[in-house]
Nucleic acid binder design. Sequence first.
DNA 1: GTGGTCTAGACCACC
DNA 2: GTGGTCTAGACCACC
Lengths: 129, 129, 129, 129
Amino acid sequence: MIHIDLRSREPIYEQLVNNIKELIFSGILQSDEKLPSVRELASQLTINPNTIQKAYKELENLGYIYSARGRGNFVMPVDDKSGGENSVELLNKITELVKEANYVGISKKFIIKIIDDVYRKNIDKGGIE
Amino acid sequence: MIHIDLRSREPIYEQLVNNIKELIFSGILQSDEKLPSVRELASQLTINPNTIQKAYKELENLGYIYSARGRGNFVMPVDDKSGGENSVELLNKITELVKEANYVGISKKFIIKIIDDVYRKNIDKGGIE
Amino acid sequence: MIHIDLRSREPIYEQLVNNIKELIFSGILQSDEKLPSVRELASQLTINPNTIQKAYKELENLGYIYSARGRGNFVMPVDDKSGGENSVELLNKITELVKEANYVGISKKFIIKIIDDVYRKNIDKGGIE
Amino acid sequence: MIHIDLRSREPIYEQLVNNIKELIFSGILQSDEKLPSVRELASQLTINPNTIQKAYKELENLGYIYSARGRGNFVMPVDDKSGGENSVELLNKITELVKEANYVGISKKFIIKIIDDVYRKNIDKGGIE
DNA sequence: GTGGTCTAGACCACC
DNA sequence: GTGGTCTAGACCACC
């Protein structure tokens, strides 16, 4: 489920962080579900355990998982997700990329279609309006 | 017009690249317009000229500017922009961020509004559908 | 009366120790009062009995409880409390935190108010001046 | 200025974090002042550079310093200090410790004296009332 | 020179 | 078995 590209410029631990965020956002990893143990994932991906540890620590700092010594790492339930990346920051990033999309000639219609697809698959959770 | 934050995690040269991309996307810098010279910008921002040079080189590789030896650096006209960042990659980035927005509870309506704003301000350039 | 958060960074046994210290400080658990048995508390909190045992052992070392083989664990009377955590260490911790409070802009008045509240509720026991 | 006890139960990196926080709170390290480089501090304390790096990273996460690749680590100015440890959390910690102080027989007068000392030395910065 | 990433491998703390 | 800390040492990215 997790794919690491050793040749990528993106650090391995960051690829891990993004991969796991993806699994959480798409609902493949559910609230309070246990992640593979540090050693297990390390041997499975043939990556050093320290690197996995670093990725898990980062995910914890971002508020996506919590870690329990002696038990494992688990997905942080959505409602408890605090201290995570700021929504404002997230919206700024989206705005920047949409500006760029417009500049390089991608139509508004096309962008809207992407939004439709994402919210159809994962069901709109409502919230901030 | 360009603002560098020395405290940011983002490398200075990367901040420069993004700042200038922003100026181009928003139309403040027009096609074939001349950018400030490396030395000029360096002294103006009190930043090492090597860092400016690196940013310009990066912008050239991305297809946003071209450099004319002995004359300076200029904004690449839109239609000529080739070898620039891949549209597919850009759309993937947007998709990822929209998934995250949905996950953290930002409504579809809200995202659509952002898209509307961007395309209204900069005028929809049509293109890829 | 005892609440354990499995998601907390704080080890479970340490949460237990702090919870019980709290109950003692606030007078809910009185001198020589019997604590729940290891097994009882374990099943009540659905936590491994070894973990409860470890917390009780720690409380004993800190001088807050004593154990009577075959009878159970009991709250150590205040005057007998010896070998407990050092007062100097405690005062050092408080000093550090107050320095930080000042640094982040919390006013002296506000801190004094907290002290007032604590000593009003629990009645000032006098002692070290 | 920094003193590490290798025999302590407290992890080295955490001792470093606390030591440096102390230096910042007491004003010995000023806003935007450069910290010793990772390697420099490592060789000075005969500690592995990775451990220093970890401490600096933690201080960055807590909002006390910022890091600039190729230039060094610097003290975060107070007004910008955001995402740092929560004031509420800090006040809770203080309350708990004061309760304990009362329980072990330390007088209110004595605690107030400590507060006085801290706010006299560092000058009351006012703020939250 | 400065911070950042990664591996290999040891050892500790918690459950 | 599980996460967490630490060392030794290599190599990369930025300024």
